[in-house]
Amino acid sequence: MNVAADQYAVMGNPIGHSKSPAIHAMFAKQTGEKLRYEALLVPTEEFSEAVEQFYSNKGLGLNITVPFKQDAWNKAERMTDRARRAGAVNTLWKDETGALWGDTTDGVGLVRDITVNHKVDIEGRRVLVLGAGGAVRGVLESILEKNPSAVVVANRTVSRAEELVKLFGELGNISACGFSEAEGPFDLIINGTSASLQGECPPLPQTAINQQTTVYDMMYGVEETVFNRWARERGAQTVIDGLGMLVEQAAESFSIWRNKRPETAQVIAKFRGE
Rank of each mutant, 00 (worst) to 15 (best):
A182C: 03
C177L: 04
S180G: 08
K166H: 13
L167E: 14
C177F: 02
V165R: 14
E181C: 01
L188W: 05
I189W: 13
L167D: 12
V165S: 08
I190V: 15
G169C: 12
A176Q: 07
F186S: 04
G178E: 11
S175P: 02
E162N: 00
C177H: 01
G178R: 14
G169S: 09
K166N: 15
L167G: 08
E170Y: 12
F168R: 07
C177A: 06
K166E: 15
L188S: 02
I174M: 09
F168C: 08
I190G: 14
L171W: 09
E183T: 09
G192V: 15
F186V: 04
E163N: 13
A161M: 04
F179L: 11
G172E: 06
I174C: 09
E181S: 05
I189A: 07
G172F: 12
D187V: 07
A176K: 10
N191G: 11
L164F: 05
E163K: 15
S180C: 08
E163Y: 02
S180M: 10
F186L: 05
S180P: 05
C177K: 03
I174P: 04
E183Q: 13
G184C: 02
G169K: 12
F186A: 06
S175A: 15
E163L: 12
I190T: 06
A182M: 04
A161G: 10
L164Q: 06
N173H: 08
I190D: 14
E162C: 01
A176W: 11
E162P: 01
P185M: 13
F186K: 06
G178Q: 12
R160L: 10
S180D: 11
C177Q: 05
G172V: 10
C177T: 02
N173W: 00
L171Y: 14
C177V: 01
F179W: 14
G184T: 00
P185H: 15
F179I: 11
D187C: 08
F179R: 08
A161F: 02
A182P: 00
E162I: 01
N191C: 12
I174V: 15
F186P: 01
K166P: 02
L164G: 02
A176Y: 09
G178Y: 05
N191R: 13
S175G: 09
P185Y: 15
G192W: 07
D187L: 10
